[in-house]
Amino acid sequence: MPILDVQHIEKHFGSTRVLEDISFSLEKGQALAIIGSSGSGKTTLLRCLNFLETPNQGRILVNGETLFDAEDPATQRESEVRKKRLHFGLVFQSFNLFPQYTALENVTLAPKLLAQENPDFKTRKKEIFDGIQSEGRELLAKMGLSDRADHYPHQLSGGQQQRVAIARALALKPDILCFDEPTSALDPELTGEVLKVIRSLAEQKTTMIIVTHEMAFARDVADQVIFMDEGVIVEQGAARQVIENPREERTRQFLSRYAEN
């Protein structure tokens, strides 16, 4: 059974169709890259998975459980949506770190708030918080940021901020970690350090969906690639095959435009 099963997702804003009949599935431990030009619907698709947008049609299943069904309003209740979001993590293009918190506090804030919902929170508060704290430090160490734990976001470079954001998303142990153009807001020399982190996550078999414009990275790191254009999936398949030997003419045109740049 796939960990993620997306069935016939449709999304329109007013009369503009942004996503049309999007279906794909993802196996546990696999990395999926979504490529395509700006405005092809990639970001909207990620936002639908993270319940930041509500699809007009379709279903989203995680581990066989229906998280979202456009036909069933009961799956769209605010209180339940909050819990369901936790199946997914999202790393934003613009990092969106909380500026008033240090790197470590950014990573531990949400786990600490969630821990308050545990029935035994009151009796074990210190123990729970200590655990979250040391997990947060471990995650930052994994990102190569041990010495930056007490820095505020504005004291960090873009690449460091994005790595904090990745640690923050990982802290909630999502089933599927989504990246929305994680390096698009970075200088070329900072792109590498973030890609390196994502690459190591792939090697550790983290289930990921990565929207990216880095074709070589998609080919080398992802297992699957989806090429989107004008809100539809034009082609999907094994990463190397789609990027090196695309079957569809539209994919070929898109990739050749990239090769020129």
Partner: peptide
């Protein structure tokens, strides 16, 4: 983005 970051963190 601040609100959205909070939302996706549950």
């Amino acid at each position: 983005g601040q609100q959205e970051a909070g939302l996706v963190l549950g």
